[in-house]
Structure formats: C-alpha cells, structure tokens
Amino acid sequence: MQIKLTGKTALVTGSTEGIGLGAAKQLAECGARVIVNGRTQQKVDKAIEAVIAAVPNAEVTGVAADLSTSEGGQALFEAVPEADILVNNLGIYGALDFFETDDETWQQYFDVNVMSAVRMSRHYAPAMVDNGWGRIVFIASESSVNIPSEMIHYGVSKTALLGLSRGLAKRLAGTGVTVNAVLPGPTMSEGVQNIMAESAARNGISVEEAGVRFVQKHRPSSVIQRMATVDEVASMITYTCSELASATTGSALRVDGGVVDFVM
C-alpha cells in the first residue's frame, strides 16, 4: 500500500516548523506539489530548504503571509488561487490562567486558530468541489476534547475546529471532498523541544526523558507514555490527505497516544 499524490497541490498553513513542516515534507515525498506558509519570508525560505533537504526532488514553493488577518489571507489567495489539499495547521498555544486571559487574548486565539482555517476553507473548497476531489484537514488537538485547565482559551479554540470540520464535511457531502480533523496529543515539536530542554538541563536528564516525565505528570492517561514525534503525527495527516482515505470524512482522528480516555 503506497500513498501517491502526484499531480496534487498541497497547501500547509503555518508550516515553517513543527507538525506543519513535517506534513509538508511527507506530502512532498508522496509526490505532491507543496506550498509552505509562514509570517516572514526568512522562515518560509528556511522551510523550503528543509523540505528540499528531506526530499531532493520536491516541488515546493512558499508564501509569506499572516493568515490571522483577512489581508494576509487575500495575499495567499492571490499567490495560490487553487489547491487540491488544504492542511489548516496554523495555530498558537500557551498556558495562561482563565482569570488572567483577557478579551484581546481570546480574540487572538480565535483569529489565529479558528478564523484562519475558516478563511482558507471558504476560499479553497469551491474549486475542489468543481474538480470532484479534495482534502481539507484541520489540525485540532486532544485538548479540544480534554480541555486543559491551564489553557482553557487554547482548548476552546481547538474545540471550535471540531465543529467546523464536522459541519463542513456535511456541507460538502457527496462532492468528493473530504473534511477531517486530526487530534495530536503531546508532540515533540521544535517549540516543545525547547521547553523540554530547559527542564532537562535543570534535572540533568535528556530531552526525551523530560518529555516522558511531562507526559506522565500532565497526561497520565497516555497509553504510549511518551510524547509523539512530529513524523508520527504527520503520517496521520498524510494518510488523511490521500486517496486511501476516500471513505473517511467528518471524523476526528486521534493521534494522541491514547491520552483521551474513551473508545470512540
């Protein structure tokens, strides 16, 4: 069983590092033309170099645009009018007590995590429908169903993506366009790795062991008892974008290491 995406154009938002960059690399490896995105040209150029280093024959370009704004979205639409695959990966996260989270912060999380995905999907879905084929993937989180008390604002924004994903899947029923959400759990992305490095230095342990300790303390229901790798999460995304997932739509696909303790 092989995933082949030759001839498909895949846009991955927020893909200059972490899960987004991992997905861009895997989609390129499967033959897709990949467009990476970040807020600065410097980060976009670095991401393009990373994809080519991983996949020397990759067809990859990039667009620098802040997709938390309608202006940034329009700049991307002008540069990339159509796409066969849309991975709505752009997102921010951070711990902050509920009573210290002001209106501006709530709005920022919705602009970045939710409205960017709304704008992207609203623009790219119609052409997918016209072509009779398309893939839209929202990168949510296990925090969307397992709201962390230390970052309620983040969890709520990711819950909104589940509603958006399910509703859009129903709206596009029978069109050949699938819409799904992927729910990563604790993942050793660059940002998390930097945080774990601080903990590792304080405790005289490796970054990997720091990740294990974090999971055991803060996500004790984890079945794998460690953080996932970026590639493990990207593999779920890549499968969801493929022809092989043609009967999977309207779903919340967990790649959380078993953190969420229910069987559905």
Rank of each mutant, 00 (worst) to 15 (best):
S68K: 10
Q108W: 05
Q107V: 14
V177L: 07
Q225D: 09
A32H: 03
E209M: 05
G211D: 02
A181N: 05
P186S: 08
F77K: 12
A210E: 11
T101R: 10
V114R: 00
P186I: 04
E208Q: 13
D102E: 14
A10S: 06
N57P: 01
I92T: 14
A32W: 03
P220T: 09
E243D: 15
E71K: 15
V259Y: 02
V212S: 01
G250S: 10
E209I: 00
C30G: 01
R202E: 15
S15I: 09
V87L: 04
A117I: 03
S199Y: 13
M188H: 10
A10R: 08
V118R: 08
L76I: 10
S144I: 12
W106N: 07
F77T: 06
L172M: 10
T229R: 10
T16V: 14
E78G: 09
S251R: 13
R119W: 03
H153Q: 15
V44K: 05
T159E: 06
M1Y: 12
M236D: 00
E198H: 10
L96W: 01
A54Y: 07
V145G: 07
S221I: 03
E100N: 14
E100S: 14
S68T: 11
G167I: 03
L172S: 06
I195H: 11
P184Q: 02
E78F: 02
E209C: 01
Q108I: 04
P56I: 14
G191I: 05
A117G: 08
A64F: 00
Y124H: 08
A50P: 03
I52F: 02
G174K: 10
D231T: 13
I48W: 00
K158L: 10
A234W: 05
A169Q: 12
V87R: 01
D111I: 03
Q41V: 12
D102Q: 11
Y239D: 04
L21D: 03
K217V: 00
A53K: 15
W106F: 09
A169D: 06
K4T: 12
M128K: 11
H153I: 13
G176V: 09
A245W: 04
G134D: 07
L5I: 04
L76Y: 04
V51T: 04
V263L: 07
S189N: 08
L161H: 02
S222Q: 07
E190V: 04
Q193P: 00
P81D: 08
N194C: 09
T69M: 12
V263P: 13
M264F: 15
V145I: 15
D45M: 07
T229G: 09
G211R: 01
V177W: 06
S68R: 11
A28M: 05
S121H: 12
T40D: 00
D66F: 07
